[in-house]
Design a protein around this nucleic acid. Structure first.
Lengths: 162, 162
DNA sequence: CTCATATGGTTGACGTATCCTCTAGTTGGT
DNA sequence: ACCAACTAGAGGATACGTCAACCATATGAG
């Protein structure tokens, strides 16, 4: 790193800080969830996505698109969650290759028990330590970064318009 | 999630956006490093920390503090890196329980080859898409979040003053 | 219809992360 | 000197993520 053009001091402060912040947040949230519920952080986000659906279920590829996960990871994770009866898998008659993941009764119980503590932690660790304008700044920055640049590769098989 | 006090819309926009942004950045950077070098992202940050040292070496626990890693993870990771001859482990005479991790010649070669592409990716994906004031905002937000709150648990065995 | 190709999802192997426990060595009190 | 408490680090068990190969079904061109 000595002979390479590194970032300016300000840039490095932002970049390095962001990395550390994110690591810390994820670790703390994962720890909190593990301590106060039987769910991991990935379990949690899967169940949230399912409860967002009126019928509590999604095709696997839809869930993958929502979470930004690869299909393989999703398949493995859903299989593990099904083994713990947090979700069930249902076959899809319309497309017989496909399958639904549906939140189970037990899954609902678990996430309803986990959510308040998790939300409190998100507030305590992040939201409540920032000013409203900082919150908005975060949202804007994230949206800027997330808008697909024209020449970017398309990670999840999504296709550029045109 | 339906019957639980969730975040306000603004808060959720920031929080969810941050999560997605970070996932996307890490994935792209990991992909870039894997494609253009033989290093993983964790390999890279370990080597950067070592090259920041004048003598290119650190005690394991010092490295752990710098990176915010648990000692077990660090021990495992350094062992794997040593197996690939990216670093070497040296015994510490001053404290014979301890050990140094030192970057090897091969490690220097690898990171010097990897750095330009990685830095270019950091710029392309993040830095160059933000205004200078957004960069500063990120730095300030990260520093706010990273300052240890008085009542927080102490993840890495660090002890609160008093 | 038939074949090539694309899509939805699974699986196994392998590297990685975390938890917990263990040993060696250090430090401090008596 | 001795013993208790602590620290540095290693290592096994298990869960997780990724890659590449794979199967089954769907789709479209001829």
């Amino acid at each position: 790193m000595d002979d390479v053009a590194w970032l300016t001091e300000r840039e490095q402060r932002a970049w390095r800080g962001l990395q550390l912040m994110q690591m810390r947040l994820e670790r703390e949230l994962a720890r909190q969830l593990a301590a106060e519920s039987g769910l991991s952080y990935p379990d949690y986000v899967v169940l949230v996505a399912l409860t967002d659906q009126p019928d509590g279920r999604l095709r696997l590829f839809e869930l993958g698109d929502i979470l930004g996960w690869e299909k393989s990871r999703l398949s493995h994770h859903v299989a593990r969650m099904a083994k713990r009866d947090l979700v069930t898998k249902e076959r899809c008659d319309a497309d017989r290759r496909g399958a639904f993941v549906a939140i189970s009764t037990h899954g609902r119980t678990e996430i309803e028990a986990a959510a308040p503590g998790h939300l409190a932690a998100v507030r305590r660790l992040f939201i409540d330590r920032l000013t409203p304008s900082q919150i908005d700044a975060v949202a804007e920055i994230a949206e800027t970064i997330l808008t697909e640049p024209a020449d970017a590769p398309t990670p999840n098989g999504r296709v550029e318009a045109g």
